[in-house]
């Protein structure tokens, strides 16, 4: 039953959101039209605005509104350190910790053959050029600890191997506050494999 072609189009458009199916899309569309037209306007404006202004940083590939993002132009950042992450969300998570003072590079995804994502769909070429042309002494690979993330890490590592840079990988191990008794086996095994010398 098509009530209005505009509402049908809105429902179809809302299905682009992750985890939103036909039922949810309809609920959202009716809610916006029935009771929250102001909110709908705000969403529409914000979306248009974001689409018009958000681009990718020319250096690190994360989302930003200028040619270079705030992190890349910040002179206090260590220009010799480069952290490779999968997504801008990962970058955000690391930034919130505040433990890292170097620069980033965002691949915009992970290698996943079963989802049809090969190296060509990620920003490997730009990363290669960046490492080749900049004064980077250490690349920290901070992809997820999943099969796809590890493949992405191995690929990155092989690609950067010819350059004279130190390549490191985020440590895998026991989380802070973790009790060994309740730890999942995979994590515990990884923690054992990646154990380090206790004396600094």
């Amino acid at each position: 039953m098509a009530t209005s072609s505009a509402i049908e189009a809105l429902k179809d458009a809302l299905k682009a959101l992750p985890g939103v199916g036909p039922k949810n899309a309809q609920r959202m569309a009716f809610h916006l039209m029935e009771r929250n037209r102001e909110g709908a306007k705000a969403i529409a404006d914000a979306l248009n605005d974001a689409l018009a202004r958000v681009t990718c940083c020319q250096r690190c590939n994360t989302f930003c509104e200028t040619e270079l993002c705030e992190i890349c132009v910040n002179p206090k950042r260590d220009q010799g350190l480069l952290c490779v992450v999968e997504t801008p969300a990962d970058l955000q998570a690391l930034e919130q910790v505040g433990a890292y003072q170097g620069l980033y590079f965002v691949l915009m995804g992970k290698l996943s053959p079963l989802e049809g994502i090969g190296p060509e769909k990620l920003a490997f070429r730009r990363l290669n050029t960046l490492v080749a042309e900049s004064e980077i002494r250490e690349v920290v690979i901070a992809t997820n600890i999943t099969a796809e993330g590890e493949t992405t890490a191995d690929y990155t590592q092989q690609m950067l191997a010819p350059y004279d840079v130190k390549i490191t990988r985020l440590a895998r191990g026991v989380p802070v506050g973790g009790e060994l008794e309740y730890m999942d086996q995979r994590t515990l095994a990884a923690a054992f494999k990646d154990r380090r010398t206790s004396v600094e």
Binding site: L111, P113, G116, I117, G118, P119, E120, T151, Q158, M159
Partner: peptide, 9 residues
Amino acid sequence: QILSRELFY
């Protein structure tokens, strides 16, 4: 298509 082959650097 088999995509994994492209994953060998």
